[in-house]
Lab assay of single mutants.
Amino acid sequence: KVLVLALYDYQEKSPREVTMKKGDILTLLNSTNKDWWKVEVNGRQGFVPAAYVKVL
């Protein structure tokens, strides 16, 4: 399983997205889209901007 680090806070803007806080460790589920990556955080799955996270 691939983990990513949240570099910035992100507030979800649609039901398909998830909120994350800077420093959160998320599970990367899909990174085929260069702009939006699907992650799991706190038991929820959704998209975050790829530029806001870094693969650990």
Rank of each mutant, 00 (worst) to 15 (best):
K21D: 05
K54W: 05
M20L: 14
W37F: 11
T19L: 03
T27C: 07
D9W: 03
Y52I: 08
E40I: 09
S14K: 07
E12F: 06
R16K: 12
P49C: 02
V39N: 00
V53I: 08
P15A: 14
M20E: 00
K21G: 06
L29Q: 05
T19R: 07
R44G: 05
E40Y: 08
S14I: 05
V48R: 00
L5Y: 08
D35I: 13
A6M: 02
S31P: 07
I25P: 02
V48N: 00
A6I: 01
Q11G: 11
V48L: 02
E17N: 07
Y8W: 12
T32Q: 14
L28D: 00
V4R: 01
S14P: 05
T27G: 07
V18Q: 03
V4L: 13
L7R: 04
E12A: 09
I25Y: 08
L29V: 09
L26R: 01
L56T: 10
Q11F: 11
K38S: 10
E12V: 07
D35C: 05
L7A: 04
G46V: 03
N30C: 05
K21E: 06
N42V: 07
K13S: 14
L29P: 00
L5R: 08
Q11N: 10
M20V: 14
G23M: 04
L29N: 03
K1Y: 15
G43M: 10
E17W: 03
G23Y: 07
Y8K: 12
V55R: 08
A50M: 07
K13W: 03
P49Q: 02
A50I: 04
N42M: 11
V55C: 05
A51K: 09
G43H: 08
R44P: 01
T19N: 09
Y8D: 14
K13T: 14
V4F: 06
A6K: 01
E17F: 08
K54R: 11
K13C: 06
D9A: 09
W37H: 03
D24H: 05
L5Q: 13
N42F: 09
K13L: 14
G46F: 04
K38M: 12
K34D: 12
S14W: 09
L5S: 13
A50R: 14
Q11I: 13
K54D: 05
D24Q: 11
S31Y: 08
E12Y: 06
V48M: 01
A6L: 02
K34M: 11
K38D: 04
A6P: 01
T19S: 11
A51F: 07
V18I: 15
S31H: 12
V2I: 11
K38F: 10
N30M: 06
V4N: 01
L5H: 07
V55L: 12
G23P: 00
S14D: 13
Q45V: 12
A51I: 14
P15R: 03
V41H: 13
Y8T: 13
M20C: 06
L56P: 04
G43T: 06
K34C: 06
L3Y: 13
R44E: 06
A50S: 13
T27D: 15
R16N: 14
R16W: 15
A6T: 04
A51H: 15
T32L: 10
Q11E: 14
K22T: 12
L5F: 14
L3M: 09
V18G: 02
A50Q: 08
L3E: 12
K22V: 10
Y10G: 00
N42G: 08
Q45F: 14
F47P: 01
A51G: 12
S31K: 15
K22Y: 06
L7F: 04
E17C: 04
E40A: 08
K22L: 06
K34Y: 08
Y10A: 01
T27I: 15
V2T: 12
K34G: 09
Q11H: 10
A6E: 00
L5V: 11
L26I: 07
A51S: 08
W37A: 05
V39M: 02
E12S: 13
K1F: 11
V48I: 13
E40F: 06
E12Q: 10
P49R: 04
E17K: 05
L56F: 12
W37D: 01
E40G: 07
N42T: 10
V41A: 10
V4S: 04
A6C: 06
R44C: 04
L5N: 03
M20D: 00
T32P: 05
D35S: 13
V18P: 01
G23T: 02
K38R: 14
T32M: 14
Y52D: 03
Y10V: 01
S14M: 07
Q11C: 06
L7T: 07
L26H: 03
V53H: 00
L28R: 02
V53G: 02
T32S: 10
V4D: 00
V48Y: 00
N30P: 03
K13Q: 15
T27P: 10
V39T: 02
W37G: 00
A6H: 00
